[in-house]
């Protein structure tokens, strides 16, 4: 009897997990569908007018990059879309949904990754206010 209930519960959870994936929040801005020129222009808009994009679900494909800030003792992670001349690269910082251990659970620098998450804008107050866009609750895959 107990085993029967357990099997039913597992089946229910499996179906629920599948359904949750199927009905996951749709992506509002899919940068993976765009050409390099369009991605540059779109990310430029997101950086210049962040208010219009806060809360939107973003999907982007680029290379993994990380940077350690000595002042705040924080490591930032980014998804960078490079261009041929490397002068007009664009990228966004991201924060993973579930905490990962660096460097073991992160890909090598320069590895191609796909990020899906919610766009947000951070304003750090200080002597000089620092502001930057970030993708929160991000899921990272190696697609």
């Amino acid at each position: 009897m107990y085993k029967h209930i357990q099997a039913k519960a597992i089946a229910f959870l499996a179906i629920f997990a599948l359904a949750a994936q199927t009905f996951a929040r749709p992506v509002d801005i899919d940068l993976t569908r765009m050409s390099g020129t369009m991605v540059y222009a779109q990310v430029y808009q997101m950086v210049m007018h962040p208010g219009k994009y806060v809360g939107k679900r973003i999907k982007m494909k680029g290379v993994f990059s990380s940077y350690y800030d000595d002042a705040t003792k924080t490591r930032f992670f980014g998804c960078v879309i490079a261009d041929a001349l490397a002068c007009c690269s664009q990228g966004l910082a991201f924060e993973l949904e579930k905490p990962h251990k660096y460097p073991d659970e992160f890909p090598d620098e320069g590895t191609e990754i796909t990020i899906t998450g919610d766009f947000d804008y951070v304003v750090e107050e200080g002597e000089e206010d620092i502001s930057y866009p970030i993708i929160r609750k991000a899921k990272m895959t190696n697609e």
Binding site: T37, Y40, A41, Y44, C87
Partner: peptide, 19 residues
């Protein structure tokens, strides 16, 4: 923060029309 990007886009119009 990106001088080369500014110069590239101003001199060669790589993306300025889209921004």
């Amino acid at each position: 923060a990106n001088i080369s990007g500014d110069v590239c886009t101003t001199l060669f119009g790589s993306t300025s029309i889209l921004t």
